[in-house]
Design a protein around this nucleic acid. Structure first.
Lengths: 146, 146
DNA sequence: ATTTTTTTATTTGTATGCAAACGAGTATCG
DNA sequence: CGATACTCGTTTGCATACAAATAAAAAAAT
């Protein structure tokens, strides 16, 4: 018999049963697949910023951060590196002196075009162990807990 | 009609439909919940290392890294910070001069005991939007793609 | 027994990721 | 109009996360 203090029922904690651990593992595998498939030394985050920018450009830096679920400090670093590589441009907004207006460059468009197929393949390979029904289910469950 | 080069059917890429984005979002929410619930300024990674070490101690640094799915460079940083805070000790193995033998300290055990309930609550709150059946399904699907 | 391979730990470099604090510009409301 | 609140971008500090190179020790192969 285990000794317990009044009402203090100690619960067990098994790391390999926790949802956080599975989320981290799955993310790791996805990132690894991405790194293998994408040639241009683009990270998942950089790719997210580029592809989302293509959807909504021109837009401000903070807005792009919100759309890609990145912190203001994080999106700044990502944008800085992409700008340094000439994949996007940053211009001060004329009507709002705070805003940095982001736009894809020619090279940015090319980089996207060059990697779209590979990026879609990444999603495909990540979900390869699942059936079509399971894939839809997984996405739906992840959306619910996001 | 869109112009295409021979056989090059351009596919669309929508960030908000990709599995990688959902995984990242869900992980972010989980980490945020953890940070809110855990008082001792422990991160998810540090908690993973501590709780796993309790399961398998004593063990080497690399072994703990493998068990917690951390890179050798990552686990070193985590172990260093935990050692600096006095939550675990590192000793050279007598029989194998390469190995760093890790063990929880008294404070380490206390920190775990102090936060086990909260850590379990983190998993609970993360999965709160899901039914019991959905939770089991999600874990199973994540396991399959890990 | 010597060579080869593996394993373990360390270090460096690059890239997220978030909290917190800051300054500057804009909007709001009394 | 003027005080207040909010937004945008920046910077710093800390903590993962992984690739790659190094070094030392141990194990395996010949």
């Amino acid at each position: 018999m285990e000794k317990k203090k009044a009402g203090a029922a100690p619960r067990d904690y098994a790391l390999h049963e926790q949802i956080g651990f599975f989320l981290r593992q799955a993310s790791q595998r996805h990132v690894a697949i991405f790194a293998n498939r994408i040639g241009d030394k683009l990270t998942t985050t950089q790719w997210a910023a580029l592809s989302k920018l293509k959807e909504i450009q021109p837009c401000s830096q903070n807005q792009l951060g919100r759309e890609t679920a990145m912190d203001v400090a994080t999106i700044k670093g990502v944008v800085d590196r992409l700008a340094k590589r000439g994949l996007l441009t940053t211009l001060r907004d004329e009507t709002d002196a705070r805003r940095l207006v982001l736009s894809l460059t020619e090279d940015g468009h090319k980089a996207i075009a060059r990697n779209v197929d590979a990026a879609l393949d990444v999603s495909e390979e990540t979900l390869k162990p699942l059936t079509t029904a399971e894939r839809m289910m997984l996405v739906e469950l992840l959306r619910k807990i996001s």
